[in-house]
């Protein structure tokens, strides 16, 4: 990271899977010209220095995306600079990048093999730009069983370390079974987009027309996790706008389901509640490209230093360690 001191201005657009549409073009960070200069005022330094706290903790971002709106390599290269700026500014030493297929075609999620292959290629391209910082997760659609298995093999051979799927197919659909079994063999995390949006979907997700039918909800994770207790599931973005109390309470007794803290929503008590419900070992730091909230919500929690270390870094690194892919 130390050699990356000056970066070009980047105005690529990040379409967060959590649902922020940056219609005015704001996104990411602009470059710095000197290092270590983000100081606090004299008064706040005496009381609390937030940047000292930011720099105190090593971090692995378990949920972060390349530019989701384009597979163009130049667009992705520019966006890589935004990601590196975030990495430097917030001391995130590893980014688990993914590019799930988020587009809808006639209101139906695009689940074509050519689409997930193209998206994986964009991640692979970005991984090569800063290979020490960028790691990658592959995406697929299990209803295309052979193509998905072939793609997993290709991506693993090229250095990807986890799976990241979207709402093409529910996580507990039988088509997932061979994928889950493959991931067990590979000792890899299955990271799945998930929602529990009472306000949008109606109480208990009535699917009132605003969400695709195959969005995975917490109960779906409970189901698949019970069927495959040796698998490792990552429930995406408890800060992604859904009802995080509902999520955590549902997942409480599924010990092989981890949650990541990413998403644009940074409600007070979200982190403390998650740790209280799930324990300090099942909560993973993530941004979903929300670069301030991801750190702020954890620093504002009541976790002690040991717990913060676990959430920012150790918990996810321990999952990587299962397959010998840990970063330290």
């Amino acid at each position: 990271m130390s050699g990356l001191s000056r970066r070009k201005f980047v105005c690529g657009t990040a379409f967060s899977a959590a649902g922020i549409v940056m219609s005015d073009g704001f996104s990411g960070f602009i470059p710095r010209s000197n290092s270590g200069s983000n100081s606090s005022s004299e008064s706040s330094e005496k009381k609390y220095n937030i940047m000292q706290e930011v720099m105190k903790y090593r971090k692995i971002d378990s949920h972060v995306h390349v530019n989701l709106s384009s597979t163009n390599s130049e667009v992705q290269k520019k966006f890589a600079e935004v990601l590196m700026n975030y990495s430097e500014r917030m001391k995130v030493e590893k980014l688990m990048l993914s590019n799930p297929v988020t587009r809808l075609i006639n209101s139906i999620p695009d689940g074509r093999p050519e689409s997930f292959i193209a998206n994986n290629n964009s991640v692979l391209g970005v991984m090569k730009i800063y290979p020490k910082i960028f790691s990658g997760s592959f995406t697929f659609n299990p209803v295309h069983a052979k193509e998905s298995m072939d793609e997993i093999k290709r991506c693993v051979d090229l250095g990807m370390v986890n799976a990241k799927a979207y709402y093409q197919t529910k996580i507990n659909d039988p088509s997932y079974y061979p994928i889950v079994e493959k991931m067990i063999d590979l000792k890899m995390v299955i990271h799945m987009h998930a929602e529990a949006q009472i306000g949008v979907g109606g109480y208990r997700m009535k699917y009132n027309g605003y969400k695709p039918l195959n969005v995975s909800i917490p109960d779906d994770f409970v189901d698949i996790a019970k069927r495959y207790p040796e698998a490792i599931f990552q429930y995406a973005h408890i800060g992604g706008g859904g009802d995080w109390e509902y999520m955590c309470k549902t997942l409480k007794n599924s010990p092989n389901v981890y949650v990541d803290t990413s998403g644009s929503n940074n409600e007070e008590n979200l982190i403390d509640f998650a740790v209280k419900q799930l324990g300090e070992n099942r909560v993973l730091f993530g941004s979903d490209n929300c670069y301030y909230q991801c750190v702020g919500k954890i620093l504002a929690s009541n976790l002690n230093e040991s717990q913060m270390k676990k959430i920012f870094f150790e918990n996810y690194n321990n999952l990587l360690r299962k397959g010998g892919r840990n970063v330290d």
């Binding site: 940047m51 500014r89 702020g296 504002a300």
Partner: peptide, 11 residues
């Protein structure tokens, strides 16, 4: 949360 607004400034 209490700190994200501050982080936007101090970072």
């Amino acid at each position: 949360d209490y700190l994200t607004g501050l982080l936007r400034i101090e970072s």
